[in-house]
Design a protein around this nucleic acid. Sequence first.
RNA 1: GGGGGAGUGGCGGAAUUGGCAGACGCGCAUGACUUAGGAUCAUGUCUCUCACGAGGUAAGGGUUCGAGUCCCUUCUUCCCCA
Length: 930
Amino acid sequence: MTDKYDPKSFESKWQQKWEADRLYRSEVDWERPKHYALTMLPYPSGDLHIGHWFAMTPSDARARYMRLKGFNVLFPMGFDAFGLPAENAAIQRGVPPAKWTYANMDRMRKQLRSMGAMFDWEREAVSCDPKFYKWTQWFFKKFYDNDLAYRGEAMVNWSPTLQTVLANEQVIDGKDERTGQPVIQKLMTQWFFRYTRYADEMLKFDDIDWPEPIKIMQTNWIGRSEGARVTFLTEGQDPIEIYTTRPDTLWGATFMVLSPEHSLVSKITTDDQRAAVEAYKQEAAKATEIERSSEDREKTGVFTGAYAINPVNGQRIPIWIADYVLITYGSGAIMAVPAHDQRDFLFARKFGLEVRVVIQPEGEKLEGATMTEAYSGPGYMVNSGLFDGTYASEDKGRKNPAINAVIDWMEESKIGRESVNYRLRDWLISRQRYWGCPIPIIHKENGEMEAVPEDQLPVLLPDDVEFMPTGRSPLTYHDAFLNTVDSEGNPARRETDTMDTFMCSSWYYYRYLSPNFDRAPFDPEEAAYWLPVDVYTGGAEHATMHLLYTRWFTKAMRDLGMFEDTAEIMRDNERNPEDLFNEPMMRLRNQGQVLGGERPGDVVLATGRYEGEKLFANRVEVIDKISEVPAGFGGVFGEIVKRTENLLTINMAGVLRTVEVIADAEVIIPAIPAPNSVNQLKHHLEIQRMSKSKGNVVNPDELVAEYGSDTVRAYLMFAFDWEKGGPWDPNGVQGIIRWLNDVWNMVTAGPQAEQGDPEAEREVERRVHQSIERVANGLEKFSFNTSISSLMELKNSLRQPVRDGKIGTEVWRESMRTMLILMSPFTPHVAEELWARLGFSYSIHQQAWPVYDPAKAVEEATTLVVQAGNKVIDRIPVSVSITEDEAKQTALASEGARKLLNGNTPKKVIYIAGRMVAGKPTEPKVNIVT
RNA sequence: GGGGGAGUGGCGGAAUUGGCAGACGCGCAUGACUUAGGAUCAUGUCUCUCACGAGGUAAGGGUUCGAGUCCCUUCUUCCCCA
């Protein structure tokens, strides 16, 4: 055959056929083992990004592999369709969010189909679809009814000029990014989920195979600490509760600090301090919590004029306010122990407050007056009454003898009690936004609240909305939405907050099970078979947000009995439901990120008219190299480092110069056919995240149009360590093209001999079997690049003997058959096409993964490596069946060993046997120690 | 500020988790075939050395018969919270 590998001629043909045949439809089949493979669903931003391909196509390859291994695989897809960008589009371009979102999803579905992935589209779930968000609201209601949802106060970014709440990403440097108006921090009533209720359970990872860094990040995020709560009384008898992890240092508390927002502040402030305190409170409102908690920030604060009594020693200590104490953490008040806490120490030194040492390290004498930093290490308690001499270790909580003793004593004498605290705060789900799932709550006239009854769900988002340029949610002035009646028929007002989109993404993979089911969030018949998710893939940036929220969600669902029907059906099918609903995903793997590659900017010569330093160019010419600048050139020349519209920044021998290209300027780019425009000039690109504004976005549609889907898939899997990612390099794709071309040519050329050479055929069989194991091993380990390199090696080792006519028809056909199945997870289209051309029956994707036979993979001859330490001193060809004794004798008799030993006897001889590891043979070694 | 990673040829990356460092690919070089080559084929390609050989996985130290891999110190860098 003479036809060339031309993916365009068959890729969409197969995609259509697979879809028409419902090849990837996954249905419950209790006779077969199941595998639920899940990859994070995209936000419908409008265009599929190369990052989506990078995340999804390797996951698809693995799902396909599991299918070939005999599993019934569910691999669904959907859209996380609520969110702020749709609203911004509405405000900026006047497109309704729903229209924008649905149009984007249509486009992205087409793009997703071009991947040739085995998505089961009949299970698609879309979070902004009322069929979906009815159940998001239903979950909210269940949580509300069971005290897992409540209203509380939280700090928000508040714009006083716009009278609206802003999201974190809308605030840059304390100002609204759109209007530049100042933003302040303000306490507002918001909806929360009791996230902390499952804090302890979420610290357990025993039953799940998740990456270690993710577990560490989640553990730190939850931030469990053991300590005590202690109540101090002010001189006016107002109680101030504090939380401390170091109750053993209570005697060193020489002042207290309240958060500026603490409710007692105005009450206890004395008249002569009031002006200063009020001024400080206003100042503190400008800083974000992240800034405030930064340790190296200059400490600020104001004395309230009031005093408290230290309950352990009766000492009278001043009460200050300072912004390094946050109202949202602990109780919003601390006891300050400057000798043993660095932040308190800096504060004390700045304001001249007493530093009293109460933990004295061994062999050192600390003095409060002369210390230069706080001491937080181990030592013996001093200045602490009856506890003097007690040893304070480095352990935290009860394990520390000093803390243990003090807590017991405090509980006995009713001064304080043991307490566990978490850095984790409750999950704030309120968003003062329109394009989100409405919170199904009604505010009655009398101020009480009630949940919308289940039969009235969903509370629909109105689509006849108009956006104000302020960004205020249109729900807050949409009368038809706002006005309703309560359960007694009295007029009432709807809640206008919508839910955080993390709420939708916390349960979407349950909706995939039965996206049209209308009696519950999911059909227990489906759930009993498919749950839990076996493998989940996505970006590590979701480590502490999405992945913690979703764990919480599943635990809450379990405790509210939402899996009971499912468990019953499992039992009916002899599946033990125990421990299956504690965690949503059994295995998690994170892919890295594809970054924009580095690209040099065009080197240009620009001439025109100067106005001061700035050049108004009427002619810009791109040249090859900086050395081609003509002598005596009077304009600006150099590499374009940046271009904004017609404004160029040019690096002229190290100096940055600005050139404005005038409207009808002559632009000459030799590489691009004339006429050229300013927009075709390329500027320098650094390796960094891809974004439209940087102009370094790689468009997968263009790549697919040029090279075909299989090549793009395989290249993404081959060019990177999947868990790491890296900068995009357009050149490497050549290697994949050559590989697929070679495979194509080899298969279409057919066998070159009827009878082959037995030795060559045995070698081919060996390579084929080694490859089966190696390709599988890479897929198991998410090491897609090594799987593909194994496939390239297999092709390399087949090509020459086939060409030389050493492989007979039978072995040739069997080898091609196996190779195509091995390739099919990675390059599903070309594998199917060649499969069909070889006359095998449709479809390759319904075949079984070839069985690895170690006996066929094994080598007959190998090399014995003789080492002295880490250095190779000889190599001797031997049989693989060599025994330890034979190997040692052979090694000692070798030329290299003779030279090394020079007649002496070795101190030690170590033998390392050769093995077959993941389809790859290793050589036996003998290490001779002298 | 806090947290998590990563440092291996000109480049992307391999290396059974302690056992011949640099697989596979890109690029490059030389040659072949060609009207042509950004096609294809062959050979080579860590560094130094004509060679024999020696050195080499960010830098320094340690453990070990043996270290890219484990431990300590330093440096660089990326990501996340944002």
